[in-house]
């Protein structure tokens, strides 16, 4: 009796675990022997095991459920708002007029401190500048030549294959000029920062007039809510009317920030336009191939699908056929 009830209760536990099907099985299988068990006992076991299950889940959640925050919101930085960037839509390209303006902002403002070391002049051709403009720009800077016959390295004007020069000789020089803070290379900054374009745009335009009451701002730092820790070594750089756009777009601070952010997105992802076009090509070709395969399948199956199997019993031999 005891052994049998033990068996029964494990089966109930199994039932609880395996859901409704197991329950129905139990009720069917217990039909034969259930008469000896009191239904009261069964109910108690069910209730107790359910309570145990719920209790252990609750206890687990109590122990491990909620995430622990090691950092204050200020240390995390303010999460940037999602802006409706046009170039981030699936079928949209960069706006190349915007890129042109953004490059102008980079050159006139950011290039004083930030390098763009992964971008050669040749990539600007056809996306941002014309060939002649890019050549002219490259020639403004001097680069080392190959060693000549005497082994001397001389200077030559830049070519399209050269990379945009950095403002400082090395990181140490950059630090020394910026109060110990290193202005990062901007070539891949959009990919390298959580929040991408939204973060860069918010960072550039997010400097409040003055830090909120009680906020601690370290020496030589500026309050920016979007920068993790809120103290950033870069001061606000974009002010209304700082650059003069050749297409006469009003150069408000947010306009410049938007342009330079899209430009930096291009610098990090110059293949984006082509990538999207390739994606459309792939979808188009796949659609055609799919349609073709449907047609071919129907063609091949036509004989199979349209055939008819008929059993024509031999006349007058009905007693041989099973009904």
């Amino acid at each position: 009796m005891l052994a049998r009830s033990g068996l029964r209760s494990t089966r109930i536990l199994n039932g609880a675990r395996n859901g409704a099907t197991a329950f129905t099985k139990r009720s069917i299988s217990s039909n034969s022997r259930a008469s000896t068990e009191s239904p009261m006992k069964l109910n108690v076991t069910v209730a107790a095991s359910t309570a145990l299950a719920i209790g252990s889940v609750a206890w687990y959640y109590h122990l491990y459920g909620s995430t622990a925050h090691a950092m204050t919101p200020a240390e995390e930085g303010l999460h940037p708002t999602a802006y409706p960037w046009v170039h981030q839509q699936w079928l949209k390209t960069f706006d190349h007029q915007t890129l042109r303006r953004g490059f102008q902002v980079y050159r006139e403002v950011c290039a004083a401190c930030h390098s763009l070391s992964r971008v050669p002049y040749r990539t600007l051709v056809g996306t941002i500048l014309t060939v002649d403009e890019a050549k002219e720009l490259a020639e403004e800077n001097e680069y080392d030549t190959e060693p000549n016959d005497e082994g001397e390295i001389e200077k030559r004007p830049g070519k399209l294959s050269d990379y945009i020069p950095a403002p400082y000789k090395n990181d140490e020089a950059a630090r020394a000029a910026n109060n110990g803070a290193l202005p990062p290379d901007l070539s891949l900054i959009v990919k390298g920062r959580h929040g991408g374009c939204d973060y860069i745009f918010s960072l550039l335009t997010g400097y409040p007039e003055e830090p909120p009451a009680g906020a601690q701002v370290g020496a030589g730092l500026n309050f920016n809510p979007y920068f993790p820790g809120t103290g950033i070594a870069m001061a606000r750089v974009l002010y209304d009317g700082l650059v003069e756009y050749e297409d006469e777009t009003p150069a408000s601070a947010s306009q410049m920030a938007k342009d330079v952010t899209e430009f930096l997105n291009w610098a990090a992802e110059p293949e984006m336009d082509d990538r999207k076009r390739m994606g459309v090509k792939v979808l188009t070709v796949t659609a055609v191939l799919f349609a073709l395969s449907v047609w071919v399948k129907r063609y091949k199956w036509a004989t199979l699908k349209s055939r008819k199997i008929v059993y024509d019993p031999p006349k007058g031999a009905s007693n041989n056929v099973r009904s």
Partner: peptide, 15 residues
């Protein structure tokens, strides 16, 4: 006390 957190909420809402 500082008002950074309150500032965050307001700035986030506004932007």
């Amino acid at each position: 006390e500082d008002c950074v957190e309150e500032f965050f909420h307001l700035a986030h809402c506004a932007s």
